[in-house]
């Protein structure tokens, strides 16, 4: 069953064509890494999936809901699409626990007891139970990102989007976040991950897609892509970073 289906996606900012004719189909439980040089449009591509960026053209269907259909209630549909940002974007005026219970309480309208119980279980899962009453600004980058992942999971999404989740972290904190993501991948979550962590793409992803200058240049299994990229551009890119 396909969770994300993108057909002929185009996105332009003014005269600048950022995405050109991207089509992709992602199945339930699949982990897909999006890689490519900076400016290749990979973050924009990810942000189109939950319509944080409005596509110029094309059709996006997520979990059976046609997001690009003008009649669709996009706000409602976003509840089922978890997103993790490069810079965390935790709510600084709420405690860690409140960050996790806010959306379930106010959007899904579950009871306070239920929201807190689920939030505590999620904190346990990302190893931050002891931080439940802390404010985000007192946490390290790695801890913030783990809370951000837990916050996205608090809405029980059908899929998770990760926008360079480790790029803003100090090197020693990358692993704790990747470990949480690996655990999530193993639990069967459908994940679309824009990343510079080639290790993660190689080990965890089921599929790698390579974007350059707004075009989907190549896609394939990580072992094939990393050892024998088919396109010149992917070869160039891998030569530069590995």
């Amino acid at each position: 069953m396909s969770v994300i289906n993108v057909e002929h996606l185009y996105k332009s900012f003014g005269k600048n064509d950022v995405l050109k004719d991207i089509s992709i189909n992602i199945k339930q439980g699949e982990v897909v890494s999006v890689i490519g040089p900076s400016g290749s449009g990979k973050s924009t591509f990810l942000r189109c999936i939950n319509l944080l960026e409005q596509p110029t053209e094309g059709k996006i269907t997520v979990a059976g809901v046609a997001l690009t259909d003008p009649k669709t209630n996009v706000t409602k549909a976003r509840e089922k699409i978890g997103m993790v940002f490069q810079h965390f974007h935790l709510f600084p005026h709420l405690t860690v626990l409140e960050n996790l219970t806010y959306a379930p309480l106010k959007v899904k309208r579950v009871s306070k007891a239920e929201a807190e119980e689920k939030a505590l279980a999620l904190l346990e899962r990302v190893g931050l139970s002891d931080k439940k009453d802390s404010y985000p600004n007192s946490l390290s980058g790695g801890q913030k990102q783990r809370v951000a992942i837990a916050r996205a999971l608090s809405m029980e999404p059908d899929l998770m989007l990760f926008d360079e989740p480790t790029s803003a972290l100090d090197p020693e904190m990358v692993k704790e976040v990747l470990d949480v993501m690996k655990d999530l991948a193993q639990s069967g979550m459908t994940m679309l991950v824009v990343t510079h962590e080639m290790g993660f793409a190689r080990e965890v992803a089921d599929r790698v897609i390579f974007l350059d200058q707004g075009l989907l240049i190549e896609e394939g299994k990580p072992e094939e892509f990393f050892s024998a990229p088919k396109s010149e551009r992917a070869k160039d890119f891998l030569d530069k970073i590995l």
């Binding site: 944080l52 549909a77 976003r78 509840e79 089922k80 997103m83 940002f85 810079h87 959306a103 959007v107």
Partner: peptide
């Protein structure tokens, strides 16, 4: 990013502004 985080969680505009 605060707006984006709230929007991504499916929080409606009014509620996002208030809370």
């Amino acid at each position: 990013g605060q707006t984006e985080a709230a929007v991504a969680l499916g929080v409606p505009y009014r509620q996002m502004m208030i809370d």
